[in-house]
Design a protein around this nucleic acid. Structure first.
Lengths: 182, 182
DNA sequence: TTCACTATACCGTCCAGCCGGTACACAAAC
DNA sequence: GTTTGTGTACCGGCTGGACGGTATAGTGAA
């Protein structure tokens, strides 16, 4: 793997394992097996490193959404259903240390959140495009957000079986039934 | 207002307006109109200050939940409905800078999140006590979490009218209809 | 006078960013 | 084919500033 990506991975791992406060250039360098100078060669500042982490998170989300969208059956709420599946993907951001990018960004410099805002705007558009009921889609996706952030904050509610049931319930809400409104 | 609470308010405001990184003892003191020595008189360390912020958040949540619970009609999902109303309360944590306590805690010292975890455990119990369908309640409450965290991260989706519709939809899902299961 | 509270000065530590230097690969010049 | 030059990747020490925490002195009310 490239040193560039290696550094980002190391930084993510630090945030997950030791907390945002421990993310220093020195620590990231050591975790990546190089020196601080090496880190600063690839990222010209700490902000820049965090920008890279955020971009990684976004890329991963886009990739995951794209993959699941292809697999998802056509019809209403296709994007919303995609989001649900992506949220429960065991290799997705919800379960990976990439989420730490958010904490790092909001902590060190809230301006670095801008790409995230843009990402949400894109999602919003997609949802609006194929959701018969935008409130329904928004609620379910917000719930996915909730689950994601809970994990990010170290809050664990229920086991994997409960997660499975929750996912089914979410998908159920996105499957229009004839003769039943809610 | 007591100096104690004044300092906490000032700290919250800093986190909201300038980001967690700017929350220093000096800054909190200045914002509260006293000196650093004064802050350290009331809180024996920065961790202690953040503990105070977290406690404030929890107290506010408990208070809000209690109030809305009284007003909420009896029946299934009473606690879940309470959570929805509390989430959209304009003076509640979702719209107040108190949420910054979470960011400060997770950033400076993840151990400080312990009271939050306990709070979630309490909520979980309450929900389980009066929710006919725990998945339904969990999903709706997770959505409230999602909205809360989105605001915390500076993500604004939709205006107040959209919020209103979202709230109604959430409450709708918690109002059992005869002859319709989901 | 005592106590609750606040101000000021200071110390030790940590960290971001800078910079001079090294190693190596490749290439053009002679 | 040796020398000289150029660019990339990385190293590690240094420094200036910021921050948490301590010590101590001061102040006003009871």
């Amino acid at each position: 793997m490239s040193t560039f990506d290696n550094i980002i991975d190391a930084a993510m791992a630090i945030v997950r394992d030791q907390g945002v406060a421990k993310l220093t250039l020195d620590a990231a360098a050591k975790a990546a097996g190089i020196s601080k100078g090496g880190v600063l060669y690839h990222f010209k500042s700490k902000d820049d490193l965090i920008r890279g982490m955020v971009q990684r998170l976004i890329d991963q989300c886009d990739q995951l959404n794209h993959d699941y969208y292809q697999r998802e059956s056509e019809g209403p709420y296709r994007w919303a259903r995609t989001m649900v599946h992506a949220c429960f993907d065991p290799t997705g951001p919800a379960n990976d240390p990439v989420g730490g990018a958010l904490l790092a960004a909001i902590t060190v410099n809230p301006v670095l959140m801008a790409p995230i805002h843009a990402m949400y705007a894109r999602w919003q558009e997609r949802l609006a495009g194929d959701s018969p009921d935008m409130e329904r889609a928004g609620l379910v996706c917000s719930a996915m957000d909730g689950l994601f952030f809970q994990r990010l904050m170290g809050i664990r509610l229920g086991d994997s079986a409960a997660s499975e049931r929750l996912m089914r319930h979410a998908l159920d809400l996105l499957t229009p039934k004839e003769g039943a409104s809610s």
